[in-house]
Design a protein around this nucleic acid. Structure first.
Length: 938
RNA sequence: GCUCGGAUGGUGGAAUUGGUAGACACGUUGGACUUAAAAUCCAAUGAACAGCAAUGUUCGUGCGGGUUCAAGUCCCGCUCCGAGUACCA
C-alpha cells in the first residue's frame, strides 16, 4: 500500500472526533497545561495559509505536552461579534447571526481538515447569549466596583458608600474623575439618591462620561482613528468632526501601575512588553499650579522637569481647554475662536501627524510665575493635547524642542537656565549631570537634587506637588453598532441602572435595519421590543415606556474586545450556567501557559484582558493576576503576487523579460493561474475575467512569464493561497510540516509553494521506512545497529530541544536527516521505528496514527510516552578535528577524543599535510581546544 | 523622531557558550529507469582563478573600523529593510 494521505487523514480525523481523543479532563492527577490560540474572527473569506501557522505551532506543542504526560487544555472558539458581518447585513439585509453561522461552519471545516487537536466540546462563541450573559455580568460587576489606591485593588461600590456616609470622600484615595468635588459625611447623607448616583458614577470602574469622538454624520457613527484618512471617513469619504458624546468608559487607568509592574513577571517577548510599557507611558514629575493674573482661575500643568521651572517663558493650553474661553482677552477673542474652530475640524491623528507646522494664538492673558511672580503669557497651540496630563504645559523653550520651536516661531524670549550649555541652535533636553543656573534657589544644583528641591518648594507655597502621570487613557466601551453585546442597562431619569444577574442574558433584539436611526441613534434605536419592564423584569415594547415601571434600554453595544477579554476562563468551564467559571475549574487550570498569536494585539486585546483578569481577581473571582504566562507572536505569512504587463492602451500582454522600455501597466493575476516556474496559464487567464478573453500575448519561448512581488496576503491582490487545495494535493501532514519548515515561527515570510514537494517527499520516505519494496508493512523485531540507535537518539535530543525552544523549522530538518540516515542504513527495526512514530506525531499526526496502528497498537498515539534520549548511544570515541592555520581550516583529522592536548599537538605536527602547510616554518603557537579545534599560528 | 526586530548562495533558511559558514529543502545541471513523459533513484551545485584530474589558491554572512590564536556570532560607528508608536509636556 502506498502512502495514501487523503484516505489516512480522513480516517484519523473521524477517529479523533468519534473518540473525543483531545477532550481535556476536568479532574485529573496529571499536571495541567493550557495552550491557547488567539481568538479568531470567522471572516467570510475563510482561512488562508497564513492563519494556521500559529495554530500548527500551538498544536504541535499541545500534542507534545500530551506525550509528556500533561492533561492538556487546547480549546478553540470564535470571536463572532464584529463589523464585517454587520457591514454585510447593512448591504444585503441578511441577519449577521446567519452570516456568522455560515462563516463559522466554513472555518470549522477548514480547521478540521488540518488535523488540530482541539477540544471542540468546549467551543465558545462570543455572540452566543449563553456566553455574552457572562460578558454582561462582568460589566455589571465593573459597574458595582471602585478602585481603592490604599489597598491597591478594586472593591465593591457598597463599601465606598459606607465610607462616604461615615467619613465623606476627602481622605479616600480612589480612582475617580478629575472633577470630583469634595464632600463630608454629613453632605453625603443629605444628598438625594440621584445625587449619590451621580457621584458614584465618578468612581465606578465602568462609567458614563462625555467623551470626544470622531463623529461621521453621514455614516451616523463614531470612527476609530484608523478609519479616518485625510480627515474624511475611509469608507465613503464623508467628513468627520470631533464631537462630545456620552459613552461608557472603562477605568483602566486605575490599573496603569499594576499593568506596568505585571509585565516583569510574564514570559512575553521584550518588544511586546516594550509596546505595552510605551502605551501605559508612565512619567514621573510634578503638578504645578499657575495663577492667571487678574482672575480667580488657575492653570494646573504636568511637567516631568519641575527643575526647569525658572526657564518658563510662556504657557500653552490645548485649544479644547476649558479655560480658553474664560481667560481670553476681548481683543484676542476673534483670533482665538477661529483657531479653536479650525483645530476642532482636524482629527487627532491629523494634528499629531503634522509635526512640522507650528501654529498657535496668544490669548492675551498672563499667568503668574509661582516663584518670580513675573507675568507668563498664555498661548493656545494644537501641539498640546487635551487628553494628556492637564491639557496645558508650562513651556520651557531652553529644555524642550517643541517649546523652543514654538518660541522661535512667535518671537517669545528663550531663557537659558543650564550652566555651560549652548542653546543657540536647539533646546537642551539632557538630564544626568546637568547643572541648573539662573534659577534662584536651584542655582548650582544638579538635575536630581534640583528636581526634589523644586517639588518641595512648590509644596511649601501650596502651588504644586509630585505626581506620576500615565499616558494610558480610560477606554471607551460604547459602540454605535448592532452586532455586539447589548449593555444590561436601562435608564431612570437619565441615570443608568443595572439589570439583575438572574435576568441575564439581555438578548440582542431584532431590528429591521442595521443602520443608525434617522435621528442619529445607534441601530438598536430601530428595535421595537426594546424597553425594560422593572416589574416583570423582561424586555417589552418600547411604546410601553412610562418612566415609572417601563424604562428605556441602552442603545449602544459593547466593543469587540469585551468578549475576548475573558474568554480564556470560559474554556475552563464552558457549560456552567451558574458562574462564568467555577472556582474549582479555575483553580485547576489557573491561566494560559502558552498563548500564540499575532503582534497586532499588542496594545488592544492583550492589555484589556490583563485588566479584566486583575479586576476579576480583585473581586475574588479568580486566583491569578495575569491571563497569559507565556506568549509567542507568530510572523505574518506574506503572499507572492503575480503580475502580468499590459501595454498602455492595448489589450496586449507582454511577457516579463520582453517589456524593455515599453510603457506597461502591471495587473495582479490570480496566483492559481501561474505555475512554479512563473509561467502563466494563458487559456485559464483568458477565462478568468471577461475583459481578458480577447487579449493578445507576447510570449518568450512560447511561455508567458509573470513578474513576482511579495505583499501582504489579501483577496484584492489575488495572491491568497488556500490551505484546502494543499490538503487535497499533498495532505494536512505535509501542510503542517511545510508551514513549520518555512522558517522561524516569529519571523514574517513569503509563502511559496515551490518547496512543498521537499516536505511531501520526506513523508513518502518516512512511509517507505516501514514498508518493503512491494509496499507491504514490514517492521522487524530484534536489535538495531548502534548506528541506527545513534541516529534515533540524536534526533530525539534535537527535536525535544527544538520543541521546547519553539524552533519548529529546525526539527523538520532534523526529521529529514533522520529519515535519510535510516533509509541509507536500511533500518527497519521496531526498536527505532516505534519511538520515531511518537516523535513525529505532534508534527504529522495522521501518518503517525496510521503507522502506530500498523505497529500493532489499538489506541491512539496521542498519549504514547515521548521517547527519551539515552546519551549512551551518542557517545563518540573520535572527533574529526578541523586543523586550521592562522584561523583558516585546511584539512580535518580524525583523532580519539581521549587524547591529551600534548598528544594531539604531536600527532598534528607530525602529519604530512601540516608540514606541507607550514613549508618549513616553525609555528609561533598551537591552540588546541579538545573536542573542538586545532589552530596553528605562525 | 523614538522603540523593537532583521540583513547569510539563484531561493527559503541552518550554524548550542566565539571554534570546520552555507545543515536541511527548493531550484538548476548531468545521469539511471522508460518508446516517451510523469514518478522514483543517483551525482554535482557559494563565487572567482589554476589544473585533464584528484586537488589547490583567493574572496565570501549589508557597509567601515576594532577585540581575539579564531568573529555570521563580541565591541564601536554607519546603511538599508520591516513592525509598532507617534507633538506625551
Amino acid at each position: 500500500m502506498r502512502y495514501d494521505f487523503n484516505q489516512i487523514e480522513k480516517k484519523w480525523q473521524e477517529y479523533w472526533a468519534k473518540n473525543q481523543t483531545f477532550k481535556a479532563e476536568d479532574n485529573s492527577d496529571k499536571p495541567k497545561y493550557y495552550v491557547l490560540d488567539m481568538f479568531p474572527y470567522p471572516s467570510g473569506a475563510g482561512l488562508h495559509v497564513g492563519h494556521p501557522l500559529g495554530y500548527i505551532a500551538s498544536d504541535i506543542y499541545a500534542r507534545f505536552k500530551r506525550h509528556k504526560g500533561f492533561n492538556v487544555l487546547h480549546p478553540q472558539g470564535y470571536d463572532s461579534f464584529g463589523l464585517p458581518a454587520e457591514q454585510y447585513a447593512i448591504q444585503t439585509g441578511q441577519h449577521p447571526a446567519l452570516t456568522t453561522e455560515a462563516n463559522i461552519n466554513r472555518y470549522r471545516e477548514q480547521l478540521d481538515q488540518i488535523g488540530f487537536s482541539f477540544d471542540w466540546s468546549r467551543e465558545v462563541r462570543t455572540s452566543d447569549p449563553q456566553y455574552y450573559k457572562w460578558t454582561q455580568w462582568i460589566f455589571i460587576l465593573l459597574f458595582k466596583s471602585w478602585y481603592d489606591y490604599s489597598a491597591d485593588r478594586a472593591r465593591p461600590i457598597s463599601e465606598l458608600e459606607d465610607l462616604f456616609s461615615s467619613e465623606g470622600n476627602r481622605d479616600i484615595k480612589a480612582a475617580c474623575d478629575e472633577d470630583t468635588e469634595a464632600f463630608s459625611a454629613a453632605d453625603w447623607n443629605n444628598f438625594s439618591s440621584e445625587e449619590k448616583q451621580r457621584i458614584l458614577l465618578k468612581y465606578r470602574l465602568t462609567y458614563l462620561a462625555e467623551t470626544e469622538v470622531n463623529w461621521c454624520p453621514q455614516l451616523g457613527t463614531v470612527l476609530a482613528n484608523d478609519e479616518i484618512v485625510n480627515g474624511v471617513s475611509e469608507r465613503g469619504g464623508y467628513p468627520v468632526v470631533r464631537k462630545k458624546m456620552t459613552q461608557w468608559s472603562m477605568r483602566i487607568s486605575a490599573y496603569a501601575e499594576r499593568l506596568l509592574q505585571g509585565l516583569n513577571d510574564i514570559d512575553w517577548t521584550e518588544s511586546l512588553k516594550e509596546s505595552q510599557r510605551n502605551w501605559i507611558g508612565k512619567s514621573v514629575g510634578a503638578l504645578v499650579e499657575f495663577k492667571v493674573q487678574g482672575s480667580r482661575f488657575k492653570v494646573p500643568v504636568f511637567t516631568t522637569r519641575p527643575d526647569t521651572i525658572f526657564g518658563v517663558t510662556f504657557m500653552t493650553l490645548a485649544p479644547e481647554h476649558d479655560l480658553v474661553e474664560k481667560i481670553t482677552k476681548p481683543e484676542q477673542k476673534a483670533q482665538v475662536e477661529a483657531y479653536v474652530e479650525a483645530s476642532a475640524k482636524r482629527s487627532e491623528r491629523d494634528r499629531m501627524a503634522d509635526v512640522k507646522t507650528i501654529s498657535g494664538v496668544f490669548t492675551g492673558a498672563y499667568a503668574e510665575h509661582p516663584f518670580t511672580k513675573e507675568p507668563v503669557p498664555i498661548w493656545i497651540g494644537d501641539y498640546v493635547l487635551a487628553g494628556y496630563g492637564t491639557g496645558a504645559v508650562m513651556a520651557v523653550p531652553c529644555g524642550d524642542q517643541r517649546d523652543y520651536d514654538f518660541a522661535g516661531h512667535f518671537d517669545i524670549p528663550i531663557k537659558n537656565i543650564f550652566k555651560d550649555v549652548d542653546i543657540s541652535d536647539e533646546a537642551f533636553s539632557g538630564k544626568e549631570g546637568t547643572v541648573i543656573a539662573n534659577s534662584d534657589f536651584l542655582n548650582g544644583l544638579e538635575y536630581k537634587t534640583a528636581l526634589k528641591k523644586a517639588i518641595s518648594e512648590l509644596e511649601k507655597i501650596g502651588q504644586g506637588k509630585g505626581k506620576t502621570n500615565y499616558r494610558l487613557r480610560d477606554a471607551v466601551f460604547s459602540r454605535q453598532r448592532y452586532w455586539g453585546e447589548p449593555f444590561p442597562v436601562y435608564y431612570v431619569n437619565g441615570l443608568p441602572q443595572m439589570i439583575e444577574k438572574e435576568h441575564l442574558p439581555l438578548r440582542l433584539p431584532e431590528v429591521e435595519k442595521y443602520l443608525p436611526t434617522e435621528t442619529g441613534e445607534p441601530p438598536l434605536g430601530n428595535a421595537i421590543e426594546w424597553a425594560w419592564n422593572t416589574a416583570k423584569n423582561e424586555v417589552v415594547h418600547k411604546d410601553l415606556i412610562d418612566h415609572n415601571v417601563v424604562f428605556p434600554l441602552e442603545l449602544n453595544t459593547m466593543p469587540g474586545w469585551a468578549g475576548s477579554s475573558w474568554y480564556l476562563f470560559r474554556y475552563m468551564d464552558p457549560h456552567n450556567e451558574e458562574e462564568f467559571v467555577s472556582e474549582a475549574a479555575q483553580q485547576y487550570w489557573e491561566n494560559v501557559d502558552l498563548y500564540i498569536g499575532g503582534s497586532e494585539h499588542a496594545t488592544g486585546h492583550l492589555l484589556y484582558s490583563r485588566f479584566w483578569t486583575k479586576f476579576l481577581k480583585d473581586r475574588g473571582f479568580l486566583t491569578v493576576d495575569e491571563p497569559f504566562k507565556k506568549l509567542i507572536n507568530q510572523g505574518m505569512i506574506l503572499g507572492t503576487s503575480a503580475f502580468v504587463y499590459r501595454l498602455e492602451g492595448e489589450n496586449k500582454f507582454v511577457s516579463k523579460h520582453l517589456i524593455g522600455d515599453q510603457s506597461v501597466q502591471p495587473i495582479h493575476a490570480d496566483v492559481s493561474l501561474v505555475n512554479a516556474s512563473d509561467e502563466l496559464d494563458i487559456e485559464e487567464f483568458k477565462k478568468w475575467r471577461p475583459e481578458f478573453a480577447d487579449a493578445e500575448f507576447v510570449t518568450e519561448a512560447n511561455k508567458y512569464i509573470v513578474g513576482r512581488e511579495v505583499e501582504k496576503m489579501s483577496k484584492s491582490k489575488y495572491n491568497v493561497v488556500n490551505p484546502d487545495d494543499i490538503c487535497e494535493d499533498y495532505g494536512a501532514d505535509t501542510l503542517r510540516m511545510y508551514e513549520m519548515f518555512l522558517g522561524p515561527l516569529e519571523q514574517a515570510k513569503p509563502w511559496n509553494t515551490a518547496g512543498i514537494t521537499g516536505v511531501h517527499n520526506f513523508l513518502k520516505k518516512l512511509w517507505k521506512l516501514y514498508h518493503d519494496e512491494h509496499n507491504n508493512f514490514e517492521v522487524k523485531d530484534g536489535k538495531a545497529s548502534a548506528e541506527s540507535l545513534k541516529t534515533l537518539h540524536k534526533t530525539i535530543k534535537k527535536v525535544t530541544e527544538d520543541i521546547e525552544n519553539f524552533s519548529f523549522n529546525t526539527s523538520v530538518s532534523t526529521f529529514m536527516i533522520c529519515v535519510n540516515e535510516l533509509s541509507a542504513q536500511k533500518c527497519n527495526f521496531r526498536e527505532v521505528l516505534e519511538p520515531l512514530v511518537v516523535l513525529i506525531a505532534p508534527y504529522a499526526p495522521h501518518i503517525a496514527e496510521e503507522l502506530w496502528q500498523k505497529l500493532g497498537h489499538d489506541t491512539s498515539v496521542t498519549t504514547a510516552v515521548y521517547p527519551v534520549c539515552e546519551e549512551k548511544h551518542l557517545v563518540e570515541s573520535n572527533k574529526e578535528y578541523p586543523i586550521s592555520f592562522n584561523g583558516k581550516m585546511r584539512f580535518t583529522l580524525e583523532l580519539p577524543l581521549d587524547m591529551t592536548p600534548q598528544e594531539i599537538e604531536q600527532t598534528v605536527m607530525a602529519h604530512e599535510k601540516t608540514q606541507q602547510q607550514l613549508q618549513g616554518r616553525t609555528p609561533k603557537k598551537v591552540i588546541i581546544v579538545p573536542g573542538k579545534i586545532v589552530n596553528i599560528v605562525g
